[in-house]
Amino acid sequence: MSKANQTPENKFSVRKLLSHPVMSYLLAILAAFVASGIFIALMGYDPFKAFQTILVTSFRTPNGFIQTLLKWVPLTLLALAFTVPYATMKFNIGGEGQLLMGAIGATIAGILLKGLPPILMVPAVLLAGTLAGAIWGFIPGWLLYRYKINEILTTVLLNFVTFALVNYIATEVYPNPEVGHPTTIRIATEGWLPMLVDNPPLHSGLILMVMVAIGVYAFTNRSTRGYELVATGANPRAAGVFGINVPVMFMMGLVIGGALAGLAGGIEVAGIQHHLIEGMHSNFKILGIIIGLIAKGSSLAVPFVAFFIAVMEVGASAMQRTLNIPIEMVYIVEALILLFVLLVDVVRRK
């Protein structure tokens, strides 16, 4: 306190500048770019060219922009799959696995339900994906509810189970022998998502994602059940005293999270891949978690952060092609952005 009194004007202005959330994000991004820029320069590359490629590629060509939108869809859903359970202070690290379960569910539905008209088939495929993801979220949720088993471990361990399951389905159950890589046969064309733009292809999952994101925001911020969810995270004991069934809230968060990631998997299959392919999750890694954490768990901020990360991811592929800088560099930048966002908060608190 005494220090603040000595230089009131100085302290005040810095705090004011930092207090605006957008400002603190910009500062964190800038700091992350400077830190990683120094590293890029030390490695003998041109940092300015690198960052220019990372940030501009998405907006230079229609194809780049559509690639960005296509990445934006699953990234937003995966991040929401993290933030909904995070509202109860539970950590869903299993987004990858839940996405893959969604992809498995959608693929099986798309192969078995052959012959249905598209008006039924498309929702059925997406629903199968969502349900499969929800089941994969329910398992850790139930283990937490019934046995108090740490959800971080169960969700992440299920990821590894899913990786093997994908391989099994793609090589034993519905293998496509024409492809060298483990891949299933295609789902029926009736199950494909309708296109918004044909060339370059942009599927209608984009609209669905925006609707779901708005729905999640309305749920967590405007509904009673959502309020209970957030109240549980804020103070589980107080929530329990006020009659909220806290363990059920934990479980519900994880189930909704699983469903959202499963939907992302369903959209990937119905909109882009049209079959299950091993390693299809590798473009997303655990980016959903990072986006959710950068957004500080706010479902309102998630779509914006996810779009920014999608821009960076598309830019990073271009950077690897044109400048020979490994794509992993962008993960370092993203991790640094998260750390600096947290550090800016610390400075703000002081």
Partner: peptide
């Protein structure tokens, strides 16, 4: 800072560094 958040950030960072 929250241990889990920091831990996950470092998990992500570590995974990235290992292939970079």
């Amino acid at each position: 800072l929250n241990q889990f958040v920091i831990g996950l950030a470092f998990f992500f960072l570590g995974t990235g560094i290992s292939t970079l």
